[in-house]
């Protein structure tokens, strides 16, 4: 078990998401940085879909009530377990009574705390992710509070301490500046409803991530991008990554807790391989969009899969070496 001692922002329990409930109006939820969640689970030998704690704002403190292996991935954080510093993307262990103190976040927007065996909240509609709008999943369908007790599954994970290369280093994009993320997008249904000049504005602008950005969506600020004529669509399904342009011309990127449908015109969609980069982009930071063809987007997903495959292979070598000792 884990007891939450201090929590600052809307921390929540997330797995990879709830992907087959759209027909009931239920969105995916799930980790905003799915690569970090998978990596944390790989580090611990967990099922990659095991639930973890997503922490968007520091400080965050908790106590472990038994000996347990854990991993911190995602954003770069300054963290200590029982007073020992933990580097980023690191697997460590706690003894019963140890306090984990995540003090600050130097870059990135969300840290993931995975534990050996996973956070053992009930599966609801096929997932342990928190569905805020529906108030189910995770822990009572709500953000974590001080005093919450999180059940942990039992695990036989080894307690060796080591780290892995963060996805942000292995999968770094060329030309990305500090505090500006470049994300690849595929144009969407209403792209042609915008004049060439408006399209150009969309591509050339460095968009500011406003404070109204969260797990529901990233609201961006920049020059107004307006269609040739107002577009009023019939409501249709949308997925995380869809970039809508409401009438004020300021793009909204739909994220994991987004509505499952909408009617604002869609100019583009962030590709699956880059959605985690948006999830790690900080409020006040910048985003730039790069047009990508569908086949290139699939190749980018292959690169992401290759990174995760290498992690799995590397971890197997560690396990084999460990069992030899």
């Amino acid at each position: 078990m884990i007891e939450i001692l201090s929590v600052t922002g809307p921390a929540s329990i997330q797995d990879l998401g709830r992907f087959d409930q759209y027909r009931f109006g239920v969105g995916t939820s799930g980790a905003m940085d799915d690569v970090a969640l998978r990596a944390g689970n790989i580090l611990l030998g967990n099922d990659e879909n095991a639930a973890a704690v997503e922490i968007p704002i520091m400080p965050f403190r908790l106590r472990f009530d038994r000996n347990i292996a854990f991993a911190l991935t995602g954003a770069a954080v300054e963290a200590e377990i029982a007073g020992r510093a933990i580097p980023p993307w690191w697997r460590s262990y706690a003894r019963a009574g140890d306090i984990l103190n995540i003090k600050a976040m130097s870059h990135g927007a969300r840290s993931y705390l995975a534990v050996g065996g996973g956070i053992d909240v009930p599966m609801v509609l096929g997932s342990r992710s928190t569905q805020f709008r529906g108030e189910f999943g995770g822990l009572h369908g709500r953000p974590l509070q001080v005093g919450d007790i999180l059940p942990c599954a039992t695990s036989t994970a080894a307690i060796g301490e080591f780290g892995i290369e963060p996805a942000g280093i292995t999968l770094a994009r060329p030309n990305a500046a500090a505090d500006e993320s470049i994300v690849r997008v595929i144009v969407a249904g209403e792209y042609d409803a915008f004049e060439a000049t408006a399209q150009e504005l969309f591509w050339s602008s460095s968009w500011t991530i406003t404070p109204q950005s969260n797990r529901y969506g990233y609201r961006l600020q920049g020059p107004a991008v307006k269609p040739k004529a107002p577009v009023e669509k019939r409501s249709h399904g949308i997925v995380p990554g869809v970039i809508q342009i409401p009438p004020n011309g300021q793009p909204i990127i739909q994220m994991r807790d987004a509505q499952t449908s909408g009617g604002y015109p869609k100019i583009a969609t962030v590709i699956g391989a880059d959605l985690w980069r948006v999830g790690q982009a900080r409020l006040g930071g910048k985003l730039r969009f790069e047009q990508t063809a569908y086949t290139d987007a699939l190749a980018a997903e292959d690169d992401m899969s290759a990174y995760l495959d290498r992690l799995r292979t590397n971890m197997r070598l560690v396990e084999e070496a460990g069992t030899c000792r």
Partner: peptide, 27 residues
């Protein structure tokens, strides 16, 4: 991801402290 090295000369350390990393593959 961190500017400061794990340890510097003169620094007091505990047994078990991390002093540096050896990168092997992604590990």
């Amino acid at each position: 991801w961190q500017d400061k090295p794990f340890v510097a000369p003169g620094q007091r350390i505990e047994a078990g402290a991390t002093l540096g990393l050896v990168k092997i593959g992604l590990l």
